[in-house]
Design a protein around this nucleic acid. Structure first.
Length: 334
DNA sequence: AATACGGGGTC
DNA sequence: GACCCAGTATT
């Protein structure tokens, strides 16, 4: 039995089924899921995917939406550049590909936000074509299987892994294989692997030499320093208005500190209250409209991801009070 | 080849 | 608190 056959058999019996992007499979739906799932765990993505597909059920509906609305629906997922590329990509497909995703790897990779792994995922999952992916799961599974203890960032190591991935790839049940090797990585070949349950145990070199703990080998972590970043907002008696951060650097083009998305209501309320205590006497009466205006109406969470046109529709007031909030941010230093 | 980009989960 | 996660683009 080949690796592919083992993975496929395992996937059918023990893999993940019933995920939102696993039914009504289309290139559009697979693409959105793949972008959301970049560096983001499945359980985190599911509710965002549901809301996003409900609001943007087709590529054309996404392409015709404004970027601000797209960002609103991304708020809380992180890596917001993904959402901007997603939106841009939908417009490129609408304008240059007649609204249909290309079905070859090169043209997919040329699209914004789509790299080799995502392109191959779209091809193998939505078209059942034999293009191998190489995400974090696959790297871990294959590096362990072949006992590759090199740091997985080297060019030559990655070239080798891509070759291994493509060689292992099923030529027939491509969708099931791709899903299977990811599910195997996520649920069996984890950091603490469950080798007793693994269908690849008999051929796995890391299992044989008991080197699972050293693979995948990560590069030495760099020292970090913290820097202080700011966001700024203005308010008058009944409006709160946030500035947009610069398009480069930390939180590019975002309208509020990311931590507002974690416990947004509490944080936003706290900031507003603290400010008003200095400024107004009857802050209780004044806080309410502020909270209303910082609420994300879609989720009622208070996430304050303002879009510029929204702020303008609200009426940007003469700034009565300026608040500057600083946030500690860690960056790597050489 | 190294780094930025984020929020959440895990141990 | 360190580390990781269905990676990609930029420098």
């Amino acid at each position: 039995m080949s690796i592919a056959e083992k993975i496929i058999a395992w996937q059918k019996k023990h893999g993940r089924h019933g995920l939102p992007w696993q039914h009504n499979i289309t290139p559009y739906r697979v693409w959105v899921s793949e972008i959301m799932l970049q560096q983001t765990q499945v359980t985190t993505v599911i509710p965002y995917y549901q809301r996003f597909m409900s609001r943007f059920p087709s590529l054309i509906s996404l392409a015709n939406a404004s970027e601000d609305v797209v960002i609103e629906h991304w708020a809380g997922l992180g890596y917001y550049r993904r959402a901007r590329y997603l939106h841009l990509c939908s417009q490129v497909v609408r304008d240059q590909h007649n609204g249909d995703f290309p079905s070859n790897a090169d043209e997919l990779i040329a699209l914004p936000g789509i790299g080799k792994s995502t392109a191959h995922a779209i091809l193998s999952i939505s078209h059942n074509m034999p293009y191998a992916i190489l995400d974090g799961n696959v790297k871990r599974v294959l590096a362990r299987y072949h006992n590759i203890s090199d740091v997985l960032t080297g060019v030559e190591t990655m070239r080798n892994l891509w070759k291994i991935a493509q060689t292992a790839m099923s030529q027939t049940e491509c969708r099931t294989y791709t899903q299977g090797i990811m599910d195997l990585g996520a649920n069996i070949c984890k950091r603490q692997p469950l080798c007793d349950l693994c269908p690849l145990q008999s051929g796995c070199k890391a299992y044989k030499y008991n080197t699972q703990g050293n693979i995948p080998n990560k590069p030495r972590k760099k020292l970090k320093r913290t820097e202080t970043c700011y966001f700024r907002c203005y308010m008058n008696s009944n409006r709160l208005w946030m500035e947009q951060r610069p398009s480069s650097g930390i939180w590019p083009k975002l309208w509020s500190p990311p931590y507002c998305t974690t416990k947004p209501c509490e944080k936003t309320r706290h900031i507003a209250l603290a400010s008003f205590r200095h400024t107004f006497t009857h802050f209780h009466m004044l806080v309410h409209p502020i909270i209303i205006h910082t609420v994300d109406p879609r989720r009622n969470t208070g996430g304050a991801w303002f879009a510029l046109d929204q702020a303008e529709r609200m009426g940007i007031p003469a700034a009565v009070k300026k608040i500057i909030k600083s946030i500690q941010h860690e960056t790597k230093v050489s």
